[in-house]
Design a protein around this nucleic acid. Structure first.
Lengths: 111, 111
DNA sequence: AGGAAATATAACTGAATAGTTATGCATTTG
DNA sequence: CAAATGCATAACTATTCAGTTATATTTCCT
């Protein structure tokens, strides 16, 4: 229980899965269509797709006997936003550091 | 050999390493300081730091006998940008799809 | 100089995981 | 309806990897 769920960034920590996501940015694709881009087996692809599904990054529509996968843009955006926030926060602290150093320099100039 | 090098997103695919990055957004920290936030051993932390270094996400300055780690904001930003680009590209294709559907609807309206 | 502190590396272990082949299950088609 | 197609799951294997303990290295302190 409470096994930490697969997060988008966990899922994106694999090159093959990032490639799948890249392919899906070009629009929905069936499993067979995705398969053409890879050398590994179809079950291997299905496993990657399941992981991406569990992370919320993709979803699919059944169309006849095919499964057409599509990107969940909101979830991808969330992952990007998380990293951007980290960067922004870091940047902000850098600014603060700069101000502090400036203040120190000013004080030293005073003295 | 050409063993695929560790990319930032590979390195970020681990919760503990994301936590390390989060801590470093607050400013540089020595290994001992980082250690306080974790329950695992010091060598485990050193291994995570090495992976983050190999990915280019962090670097450190030797200060006496301590190593003060700091975030490499540009690399973190690169990772974020990659995901943002994926999202943007997907979004663009969605727009195109929307236009196509609009065009089809317009044609059907004509007929 | 000798001991303690801070960190890295080495060697090992267990668990997670990416791959495999075999099989099951719908759905379409002849 | 029988065969074939598209995909998922099961069961297994090999490798990766995150953790461990033990040790080495450098620097600081007395």
């Amino acid at each position: 229980m409470t096994a930490t769920p697969t997060t988008p960034l966990d899922a994106l920590g694999d090159y093959s899965r990032r490639r799948i996501i890249e392919l899906l940015t070009d629009g929905p694709r069936t499993v067979s269509q995705l398969q053409e881009a890879f050398t590994f087996s179809q079950p291997a692809l299905s496993k990657h797709l399941r992981i991406l599904r569990n992370a919320g990054l993709v979803d699919y529509d059944r169309i006849g006997r095919t499964h057409q996968y599509r990107l969940r843009g909101d979830i991808l955006h969330n992952a990007a936003s998380y990293l951007l926030q980290l960067h922004a926060f870091w940047n902000h602290k850098l600014d603060a550091l700069g101000s502090t150093l400036d203040a120190i320099a000013a004080e030293e100039g005073d003295a």
